[in-house]
Design a protein around this nucleic acid. Structure first.
Lengths: 358, 358
DNA sequence: TACTAGCACTCTGTTATCGAGACTGCTAAC
DNA sequence: GTTAGCAGTCTCGATAACAGAGTGCTAGTA
């Protein structure tokens, strides 16, 4: 990293070939391989010289003397930002993917599973999808259902279409009639309110609420604030096997980290949440400070949906040695499809409003 | 397997020690180890003789000449069925587990996650939990909500408390008022009907249903039959890392199978479903024909809940070399807690009915 | 000055060999 | 029926030897 100077075009070309080659073969790349792969009209010796400068500049590294070079995180980053080139998904791939969405049912759960599966297969990595939720959820509807003498099922629907269910235990039996009346009352009172407005809620003068009614309200508030803080809902994932198959995870310990990230959810949630407010496809390469624990992993993520109305996150995760071009183009394309679906379901106001108003 | 004859008490004792030892050390067990471990008053040579008969009988095997013995599937089975001994969870372990359930919220999703986590930690294996569902679900309640001009959110609650949500696209906008009236009508018509009764449903004479109304009914039927056929709902799992840590999975390929089983869900679903109708804790050791693909894995599973009202499955999965005693006792204990919770929530009629009626 | 041919050098990964250690199965004696 | 003793077998780890890949450097060329 002695030189912050610009790389020469030839150096860039060499780096591009090197990264590409390393991504496909997973073995350190030597000067001969580079000469043969690209149709460069220079000798391997010249390439070796350039490799030395690239190593000095911190873009590549030798695992040991007399091995080929492999990209550093910095090298990958340069590759993704400048060298990767055409990132449009080929037409036939587009059609393959689109085709898989055709048979999609109306069930949100299935939809998420399908998307995760499609992504994982298309990029040959692990994949994540979170369902679309509204940034700040407003109350839409509540339903109280008596499931037994001592329990009420509370079903709450928020404006983003997300659904929340809880069981409340009661001391005495409450009839479905009473419950229905109560839910109607709450629906009228709370419709379209946000969490803060509901927090300020007071019972009307002279009205003496039952214990269970207070309990219901408390649950509504708890749940809504919970929703707003976690931001991303359930995380669907698929294709962990694809990651396991990569040679970098021949060493079990490495993969153990991956599994822990996925199973513990903590880190993952915060990363996905941060993407929610981003713009376009984000490529996170290796342990970039912020997300300390992900070290030899890269993420290609994007938000999807309709800004401010309902959005989720989707993307893929693989080793840093990951097919970035394919990943970015696939993720972008799938996100387009998903945004279309969301817009269709929730009404595609944002664009159209501006259009018809002008 | 020459002798179907009974094993002598001493042979059983030796087998018990051997299995126990192998479970804890994960290395083939030799005659000396057995002499030292159990306080047997015979020499290692005698034990060697007995080991030979046990090997003849198919309960143990040598990985190679001059290694210790390890149990075969048959050996494990005998161990679990006859030799395992006391399978009651120690009091302090009970308290640890119970304690973790105290802080449980009312959210079903959280509840399942918690249970999976508790199981995984307590047995140090992977764990599975499915939410409680009724064997044959009856219709309980439907709610139609307009989320945009072109989409309706359909929320259906079944008698077991399970909730199903779908998005329906419509060609023209339908007001929430109309939708509410429609849902009220359907609620009155369908309450407590099962799938077959709903299938036979006809619109009243002279009533001309809208397109979307027919669509709604179709979806209700589709969904209910779907629910009945899959039987187990979502499968929650945790603790895959614990399995990965076991020495038998130092070889990546082995673990790949495990991951595939969990990610593809097919096999798993059918196994769990079959457990749903079983009685008490079931131990599935290795590839027992039925579940071909699970070979070096064992499962300890049990149904929980209230028979005929709402039940689910929970249990653990680990290598065949698994702490069966601990697994069985833990699974049994947790299932007891869960059944209690379910009974509390759904009303513990079965027992009490019989009681009060007599 | 920019490139290249050639070569000595370094490091890995594989294979072969060897010896220590762990258990066994067998024999013969108790 | 049990046991001590022992030869035989197999694994595992360490060590050495070697082929292969790729480098950095030097000296020569356009």
């Amino acid at each position: 990293m002695n030189e912050p100077a610009e790389l020469s075009p030839r150096q860039k070309e060499i780096l591009a070939i090197l990264v590409h080659e390393y991504i496909t073969t997973a073995t350190p790349v030597g000067s001969n391989t580079i000469r043969d792969a690209g149709r460069m009209s220079v000798s391997s010796a010249t390439i070796r010289n350039e490799l030395m400068s690239l190593e000095d500049a911190g873009f590549i590294i030798q695992p040991h003397t007399s091995a080929g070079r492999i990209p550093t995180l910095l090298g990958y980053r340069l590759f993704v930002e400048q060298l990767m080139g055409n990132v449009k998904l080929p037409d036939y791939e587009q059609r393959t993917i689109e085709h898989q969405f055709y048979q999609m049912g109306t069930d949100i759960d299935q939809w998420m599973k399908l998307t995760a599966a499609v992504l994982a297969r298309a990029v040959d990595t692990a994949s994540f999808v979170t369902p679309p939720v509204a940034g700040e959820s407003r109350f839409r509807h509540i339903e109280l259902i008596s499931v037994s003498e001592s329990a009420i099922l509370l079903v709450m629907v928020l404006q983003d279409g997300s659904i929340h269910q809880e069981m409340l235990a009661t001391t005495n039996s409450i009839s479905q009639d009473v419950l229905s009346r109560a839910s109607n009352r709450l629906n009228a009172l709370f419709e379209d309110l946000d969490i803060n407005e509901i927090r300020r809620f007071q019972w009307p003068e002279g009205f003496a609420p039952q214990d269970w009614e207070e309990q219901v309200i408390r649950h509504i508030i708890d749940r809504m604030s919970n929703v707003n803080s976690t931001a991303v809902g359930r995380i669907y994932h698929d294709g962990l096997v694809n990651v396991l198959k990569q040679p970098e995870f021949l060493d079990i310990d490495r993969f153990q980290h991956v599994l822990e990230i996925v199973e513990r959810r903590g880190v993952l949630e915060s990363v996905l949440t941060s993407i929610l407010r981003a713009n376009g496809v984000q490529v996170i390469i290796g342990g970039t400070g912020r997300f300390g624990s992900i070290d030899d992993l890269s993420l290609v993520l994007t938000p999807y949906g309709v800004q401010g109305l309902a959005s989720g996150v989707l993307g893929v995760m693989g080793p840093t040695r990951m097919p970035y071009a394919r990943a970015v183009s696939t993720v972008r394309y799938v996100s387009g499809i998903m945004s279309g679906i969301v817009a269709g379901l929730y009404g595609d106001r944002p664009q159209n409003d501006a259009h018809s108003a002008s």
